[in-house]
Design a binder for these strands. Sequence first.
DNA 1: TCTGGGGTCCTAGGACCC
DNA 2: TCTGGGGTCCTAGGACCC
Length: 413
Amino acid sequence: MAAGPTILHADLDAFYASVEQLLQPDLRGVPIAVGGGVVLAASYEAKRFGVQGGMSGWRAKQLCPHLTFVSGHFRDYQRLADEVMSILGDFTPLVQRISIDEAFLDVSGSVHLFGPPEHIATRIRERVRAEVGLPISVGAARTKHLAKIASQVAKPDGLVVVPPDREREFLDPLPVSLIWGVGPVTQQKLAEKGIHTIAQLAAAPGDALQSLLGRALGSKTSALAANLDHRKVTPGGRSGSVGAQSAFGRREPEPEFVRQTLGHLADRVGGRLRAKQRAGRTVTVRIRFAPLRSITRSHTGRSPVSSTLTLTEIAERLVWGALAQQTEPVQLSLLAISVSNLVDQAAVQLELQLDQHTSGAVAVDVEATRWALDHSIDDVRRRFGRDAVGYASVALSHRGVPDEFRELAEHEL
DNA sequence: TCTGGGGTCCTAGGACCC
DNA sequence: TCTGGGGTCCTAGGACCC
């Protein structure tokens, strides 16, 4: 029995921009960009001029002089994307959301209820359009990789089904950049070897690719080009790290500024860890210096942490250690904190109780006390809002980006 | 005129252990 | 007298994705 095209990849088109055009009818049909300094998303009218997400605002304006910039309505993005995901869930419980606006579905168990995959895909597109008001593209194929490529080819507002007996025909002429994991650097390396299409990539010897791209990427890329993808659609899934960052134009590394920024970041990261009942043993800081260069420093401790004050202290130590190593005077443009090596908080508390009878008692006890204090703060914030209570220097610190945007990025998918 | 924020995965070297 | 093999963990950096 040959498997049919039972994996779908559903991807909302130019999502942020489409939402703005949905909410503000006078923006429909005109080139718009969400964002200001940086383009977060561009409407298809703007994309026709070459405007792309991630591009700086002035560059976008150069390409498209009539471009309208709109500020984002981030809560609406979350709300509408959740509505779309809920529609997807009506067709199968096997929905794997991989970002705010896209998901894989395995509909192999749904065909007896809803008909063949291409019919399900069509129904999804109709319902999203009718009930939410947004365009969505869908790819249907036998594997996740093919379905994902198919949805990209289907854009904007289209459906592409890849029948199992026509997969090679579909893949061969496409550019290598459509393969998952092939970005600008890899694309350039391949181009230097004369490899531009997936057909050329599939024909290249595996060991040559491994020496060109490294072992893992080489073999993964060969496998995808050869159309060998066995990944399953797995709903849920928990993240392995939690982080936050803050960019600011160009600042002298003044102790008070560094301390407040790290306190603010630690507050956000700690709060999210505690909300997920998680804690982590490894704390990593990233420092970006004014003209682009960035470094990371990390510390792995014996016991997991999630309290705001402990995170702040570790981060400060790492940052000042790294700054002390710099031989030239530096200016900062970004600071970030990330926590990894995560474990469940329940396990942490058990360990805390055990540790109180051992030599690690003092340090661990401090963390336990701070964790309890943070938990009370979290509670108050849940009831009275984020700004109701907090550490003084943290509460005062400025933010360069709307809070809604941060919360959107933080949202547990 | 350098541009946001949140992630994943991989590499490579060194420490340490058996 | 440098000579083996394998494994884990940690650190720092980089490519890539949305």
